[in-house]
Simulated assay, not measured.
Amino acid sequence: MLGVEGNQIDLRTLVGQRVLTSVKVGNLIVPSTSLTEHLRRYTSPAVFNSAGIEPQYAMSLSGSATLIKYSDRYFAFTTLHQLKHPQLQYDFDQFCLIGNRPHTLVTPQRIIYATGNDSEDFDCVLFEFTKTVKRGDLPSFEWYEITEEQYSIKTPKPDFALSIGYPGFRNYIDYETAHFGMSPNAIAGREVEPSLKGRLSFAPREKLHFDPSGFSGAPVFGVKVEQANSRVFFAGIVTEAGKSQIHFISFKRLTELLKKAFNND
């Protein structure tokens, strides 16, 4: 377990005796001790505008979201089941990100989701925020940039995986004081055989001592350790999180929604 705002994961413990002093993230070289802090910018709480459903509450929380940039457009991935709140059934257009200005929520300009025979198993929704980012309502630097090379190749096998999300036990809204408690956790471990069809998975280095509920929608990053050229790549998003195993949809499969976004322009 890691509170990202607290102690950092020592990544060298995950790769044996090989030295891991820095990691390449896109075009940046990030010290290994700062990697989790750097990657946290690409994940966000999944916020839903519930005004009109629960009149006394303007917003609700339901898991995590992954922020990516591709071809100068900005998108947020999350899981479909997050919209199926136990008490509230959210509509797609209720999904929001927290805006640059205080006390503001930003809604998506477009929603892309799977249809057909595989839609139920896919469990993923893509929201586009390009117009609001370029208008300045959302920051432009908090989106993980996908290159053409990564877009076109199969998701490589990582030496270890790392996910940063917003579990429910640390994230809450105090409606009486209008305070939003927002604090992410990181989970790191080795890839293992998935027990769910259509998923990849990794096992935390140590069994978690907290409930990871709320990690759905969070990004999963792979790390390839190659002597002085260790690098990070986007591996997918969490769909089912348990204390001993984290399942996720691979980025290769997620490109189906990105292709749909561009093909339907």
Rank of each mutant, 00 (worst) to 15 (best):
T130A: 14
L88F: 08
D211W: 04
L83R: 11
K260G: 12
K24D: 02
S44G: 10
I98R: 08
E240K: 03
M1P: 11
L67T: 00
T33V: 07
F95P: 01
L126E: 14
D121M: 13
R101M: 12
F233A: 02
V192T: 13
K224F: 03
G116C: 13
L105S: 02
A161K: 06
N263P: 07
I53E: 05
L61F: 06
I246K: 01
L196R: 12
M59S: 05
F221K: 01
R18I: 07
P219E: 03
Q227N: 10
A188S: 12
D10N: 13
T147K: 11
N7T: 13
K157Q: 13
G222W: 04
F95D: 00
S216F: 03
F92R: 14
Y42S: 00
T78Q: 06
P102L: 01
Q87I: 11
N171Q: 03
F141H: 15
S183T: 07
L20E: 05
S230G: 06
S119C: 09
L196E: 12
I146Q: 04
V225C: 10
G116N: 14
V4E: 02
G26C: 10
P86C: 01
R135Y: 11
D265T: 12
L2A: 11
T13G: 15
P184A: 03
I249V: 13
F141C: 09
I98C: 06
K197A: 06
Y90C: 15
V223H: 05
Q109F: 02
N229V: 02
Y166L: 00
Y175L: 05
V238M: 04
S201D: 06
V192F: 13
R18S: 12
I9Y: 09
R41D: 12
G236A: 08
V225R: 07
Q87D: 14
R110V: 12
D137C: 05
C124L: 08
M59H: 04
L39V: 01
F77S: 04
P102M: 00
A178M: 09
F234I: 01
A161D: 11
N49K: 02
S244M: 09
V4C: 01
I146C: 05
S119D: 12
Y90W: 15
Y70T: 06
P158L: 01
R41I: 00
S44M: 10
S230F: 02
A188T: 06
P55F: 10
D10I: 01
R73V: 00
V225K: 08
V225T: 10
L254W: 14
W143N: 00
F262K: 15
F233L: 03
F141P: 04
G16M: 03
D174T: 08
H209I: 08
D123W: 08
Q56C: 03
L67M: 12
A161W: 08
S62D: 07
D72H: 15
A178S: 12
S244Q: 13
Y175C: 06
T43P: 13
F48I: 01
S163F: 01
P139R: 14
L80A: 07
E120F: 12
